[in-house]
Design a protein around this nucleic acid. Structure first.
Lengths: 232, 232
DNA sequence: CCTTTTATGTACCTTGCGGTTAATTTGTCA
DNA sequence: TGACAAATTAACCGCAAGGTACATAAAAGG
């Protein structure tokens, strides 16, 4: 193993601190978290290897324990970080000034796309579910994070019902469930699905069709007299 | 650890063999597989513990290695067994003589229900996806197993298109994808979903609604001018 | 019966890996 | 400039857990 040069990044970026440490602690933490995220997403909690993680960081194993206590603590931090970063994506999307059906379409597409773009997040959520969400539940951030999307859907539902374009029994939570299930599964189960049925649905073309289908499904479930566009 | 009495089961059930072994090898294998299925579903491949598994069987660790070679071999056997057993469930369902829309409804409901009833299978598939389906792909049974359901859907699609009740672009594979995504997610992500949004959708009432919603979604996507039943 | 094969119990080995000890450098503040 | 804290290094530890060696009992089979 060749020696890593840690000074390059140092001289060029001694920005935030009053004086410059040999290494910025915050940067070290971030470095560890980035590597650990990759590792946990790839191998799960028990499957990830602390020694391997340490080697891939620019610091040492000792520092992992210094900052995160133990493997579980590291995992929890990884989980919270990845959840938080996704919340930001969600909150960036603004549909308050769109007509309800269009807003729903946008939200659904955005959810679908963001899942495709964040397989690491998906994998970590899968892993968390294997553990019955015990670490997410312990967190005091995660359980409150995803409410933003529900609020948006609730707003859209309210407006849509008021104007009569959405069915009376449309429910924000159910809507989110529908969107999520399709979007999540599309990434999470790609491997086994392709193994059983071939990769046709996962080509660029296939994904385009699927995406449109998901929108149709969701809108079809809540829009009064929804007529999907035939052909794509 | 107290000594297990292996004779009780013996005297009472020396059924199938020509002569009676002290223990029926097939039964021993089955016993191991049952325990191992539980363990792998609960903790994953790396998380499951061979010693623990051995203790919960009526035999010893030695026998696990004797019959399955190593941990990975045991895991592969578990995977194949659980996949196979689900195929049987699928094949039992007969909808060839049902009118297309009703047939679709039945297939969707059956898929939904069978997922709810087999959380262990779901967990193993989740775990397999974490491993990018490398073990399922290696298998020479699994990739050919799930075709049955596609055949059924293809038949229903063909009949539905012929009689004009299904849209021309209805696709069996996409249909299965839709049904599976909802049904799978409903079980696989229950823990994190409930952590984020509460358990409302997972009560008996909630599940009833969700199930009907899934049927609506699927039918809505392929039935010409589908009108869901309002209220539930 | 005597040999070969299948099945099984006990005890052991090896090492990967999560975690720690202790000392050292780097900075802060009196 | 020296005490104290924060950050970091390198070497080490213990043991859990995957896997094996070896002896042997039970069956098949000639």
């Amino acid at each position: 193993m060749e020696h890593r040069h840690m000074d390059g990044a140092q001289k060029s970026a001694p920005k935030k601190r009053k004086t410059s440490w040999k290494k910025d602690p915050a940067a070290v933490k971030e470095d560890i978290l980035t590597v650990a995220t990759e590792a946990f997403a790839a191998h799960g909690l028990s499957g990830a290897n602390i020694n391997e993680i340490a080697e891939k960081t620019s610091t040492s194993k000792r520092m992992i324990y210094y900052y995160f206590g133990d493997k579980e603590g590291l995992y929890r931090s990884v989980l919270e970080r990845v959840y938080s970063s996704l919340r930001e994506t969600e909150q960036a999307l603004n549909v308050a000034d769109l007509e309800p059906i269009m807003a729903l379409r946008r939200l659904t597409e955005a959810t679908f796309d963001s899942h495709v773009k964040n397989p690491q997040f998906i994998r970590l959520v899968m892993i968390e579910n294997i553990h019955n969400a015990e670490y997410a539940r312990k967190s005091d951030v995660i359980p409150t994070l995803n409410k933003a999307i529900i609020d948006k859907l609730a707003d859209v539902c309210a407006r849509g019902k008021a104007s009569g374009v959405l069915r009376d029994d449309a429910d924000p939570l159910e809507l989110h469930w529908m969107t999520s299930s399709a979007s999540f599964y599309n990434v999470s189960n790609k491997a086994t699905f392709a193994t059983s049925f071939g990769g046709r649905l996962f080509t660029t073309e296939g994904q385009k069709r699927i995406r449109e289908r998901v929108v149709d499904m969701v809108l079809g479930a809540v829009v009064v007299d929804y007529r999907p566009r035939s052909g794509g």
